[in-house]
Amino acid sequence: MTAIMQLSFDVNGAPVVVEVQARTTLADCLRHTLGLTGTHLGCEHGICGACTVIVDDAAVRSCLMLAVQAEGTRVVTVEGLSGDDSLTPLQAAFRKHHALQCGFCTPGMITTLHALLTDEPFADADRIRDVLSGNICRCTGYIPIIEAALEARIAYQGKREDGRR
């Protein structure tokens, strides 16, 4: 029952092959097997959203997905969203609006919003709040996060005119 399984998938644009136990979640695989510790575990039961990563263009909770379920998928983590020295417009807006304090929920906020705004670059404040209801922040009270997301939309809007996915 402790089967070790080989798993091939794409992480932040690069193919990886790892061996994991069947019981290992995608979050633990990313953090401990691949060393991508930007993905945080706040609850391990699918409520807090800190572990959100993007799998095949969709934001998902990596604590609610076994690593083996990621076979053949494209996974993007917070580390995959910005280059070495720069902040993305979304990250810069977070900094400008002080949309983070302890930083623990932040990677999940960034990945969730990146997925949302890529799909829905014209999402309004209500839609953004609704989507972020799946990501708990204990520090900010959310208000600056919403402000940052609204401001960052412009960077996503060039690609898509209709606002729909």
């Binding site: 991508l36 917070v78 990250q91 983070l100 930083g103 932040t106």
Partner: peptide
């Protein structure tokens, strides 16, 4: 923020 925002 520079490290927190990039998962570092």
């Amino acid at each position: 923020d520079l490290r927190f925002l990039r998962g570092r």
